[in-house]
Computed example of a mutant assay.
Amino acid sequence: MDKQTEIEAAVLRRLIQHLDERKDVQNIDLMNLAGFCRNCLSKWMVAAAADEGVALDYDQARERVYGEPYNDWKAKYQGQASAEQIAQFEVNRPKD
């Protein structure tokens, strides 16, 4: 691995660590403010693995990003989105 790739990998690990330390920040908040969330990171990880010919499914990627099975994390930390958060998300939702 070259230095640039090592640096980028370290930054991703630090981002995941930071998000793990900020469980109070909900995914909908991330989506509304930054246009991505923990689930997006998981999807990007699956796509990058596929590009490299590595089998990684979405649940495995989410476990790496969340640090535990997604349903466990969701039960412990995910709060109910407010009507305002949902309305803002609908306005900013990525168009597929």
Results as ranks from 00 to 15, higher is better:
5 T>F: 13
10 A>R: 15
29 D>P: 00
41 L>H: 08
31 M>E: 06
20 D>T: 11
51 D>Q: 13
20 D>R: 14
1 M>H: 05
26 Q>T: 02
58 Y>Q: 07
24 D>V: 04
73 W>S: 01
35 G>A: 07
70 Y>I: 11
89 F>T: 05
59 D>W: 11
76 K>L: 12
27 N>K: 06
49 A>V: 03
3 K>V: 10
94 P>Q: 12
27 N>S: 08
12 L>Y: 11
53 G>Q: 13
55 A>D: 02
8 E>M: 14
19 L>H: 10
94 P>I: 13
82 S>Y: 12
39 N>I: 09
17 Q>A: 07
11 V>M: 15
23 K>L: 02
95 K>E: 14
57 D>S: 04
38 R>E: 00
38 R>G: 01
41 L>V: 02
10 A>M: 14
68 E>W: 10
30 L>W: 06
55 A>N: 00
17 Q>K: 15
41 L>C: 05
30 L>T: 02
3 K>A: 11
73 W>G: 01
40 C>I: 06
71 N>F: 14
29 D>E: 12
89 F>V: 05
19 L>G: 00
17 Q>I: 01
85 Q>I: 02
88 Q>I: 12
53 G>W: 01
43 K>G: 02
2 D>R: 06
19 L>E: 09
57 D>M: 01
59 D>P: 04
77 Y>C: 06
76 K>D: 08
79 G>F: 05
34 A>W: 10
87 A>C: 03
29 D>Y: 04
80 Q>M: 13
66 Y>E: 02
12 L>H: 03
47 A>V: 01
78 Q>D: 08
34 A>E: 08
22 R>T: 04
42 S>Q: 04
63 E>F: 05
75 A>T: 08
94 P>G: 14
73 W>K: 05
7 I>W: 12
93 R>V: 06
20 D>Y: 00
35 G>V: 02
79 G>S: 10
13 R>D: 15
85 Q>W: 09
62 R>V: 06
85 Q>L: 11
85 Q>E: 15
9 A>R: 13
57 D>I: 01
15 L>F: 09
40 C>F: 07
2 D>T: 06
23 K>H: 15
46 V>Y: 03
71 N>L: 09
67 G>K: 15
18 H>P: 00
79 G>K: 13
78 Q>F: 07
46 V>S: 00
39 N>P: 00
67 G>Y: 08
44 W>S: 03
33 L>C: 08
63 E>Q: 15
7 I>Y: 12
92 N>P: 07
87 A>T: 02
4 Q>C: 00
47 A>C: 03
35 G>Y: 05
55 A>L: 05
59 D>N: 14
66 Y>G: 10
51 D>R: 15
16 I>L: 05
64 R>C: 07
53 G>K: 08
94 P>V: 12
79 G>I: 09
19 L>D: 05
46 V>D: 01
42 S>L: 11
27 N>P: 05
85 Q>S: 13
87 A>M: 05
17 Q>S: 07
37 C>W: 03
25 V>T: 06
95 K>G: 05
54 V>L: 10
87 A>Q: 09
31 M>R: 09
74 K>E: 13
28 I>E: 07
61 A>L: 14
30 L>I: 02
44 W>G: 04
65 V>W: 07
54 V>W: 01
